[in-house]
């Protein structure tokens, strides 16, 4: 870490190697879809340039994920705008290249698919805390860092989001629980 901060690209490459998979997974789950690799690359480049600002509070990974989350948000926003541009320019937006989501087919089980659907239907703020806390298995501190929120907010929002999600799920029948 210290060597990377001093501008050692070999040292940084070790961090890149170690963090590519979790960063990519976070980007996909936060909504980057097929552009996740681009998001990750951009995040690594930005992270390196901002290493001077890294404080080490919640680890490099969480700090990188904050940049990934931010890039993903920008991407989602610009996708919406792009669709607008194309409509105004008289071009019909083609089908998104990443449909159907590979996870759609990979996630087995009716209930799990239903849960994913309901999770997606939450607003972004609620969805993101649940994705970070449970799907990505981040701690409260890491989630706070990733989403740029105070820890207290992560706590309260997680509880609220879980409540909303539960209300939308059918009564549970856990087979073999």
């Amino acid at each position: 870490m210290a060597r990377a901060r001093a501008g050692d690209l070999d040292a940084y490459e070790i961090l890149v190697e170690r963090c590519t998979a979790p960063a990519h997974r976070a980007a996909v789950l936060l909504g980057a879809g097929a552009d996740a690799d681009d998001v990750v690359q951009e995040a690594f480049v930005k992270a390196y340039r901002q290493l001077g600002r890294y404080r080490g509070d919640a680890g490099f990974k969480a700090w990188l994920l904050a940049i990934v989350a931010n890039e993903t948000r920008n991407l989602v926003r610009s996708r919406r705008r792009r669709d607008g541009v194309l409509q105004r320019a008289g071009v019909r937006a083609g089908p998104e290249p990443h449909e159907p989501d590979p996870a759609e087919t990979a996630v087995a089980g009716e209930r799990r698919r239903f849960l994913l659907e309901k999770l997606r239907a939450l607003d972004a703020r609620d969805r993101d805390v649940l994705v970070c806390r449970y799907l990505l298995d981040l701690s409260e501190a890491e989630t706070a860092m990733t989403l740029g929120l105070p820890r207290g907010t992560v706590k309260s929002r997680t509880a609220r989001a879980l409540g909303k999600l539960r209300d939308r799920m059918p009564v549970e029948e856990v087979p073999g629980a």
Binding site: L29, V40, Q41, P102, A103, A106, V107, Y134, L135
Partner: peptide, 16 residues
């Protein structure tokens, strides 16, 4: 939710 996370297969990340 945790189980969903484990089951959610993400395509392999490109080597960056």
């Amino acid at each position: 939710l945790r189980e969903l996370g484990r089951a959610y297969a993400v395509p392999e990340a490109a080597d960056q």
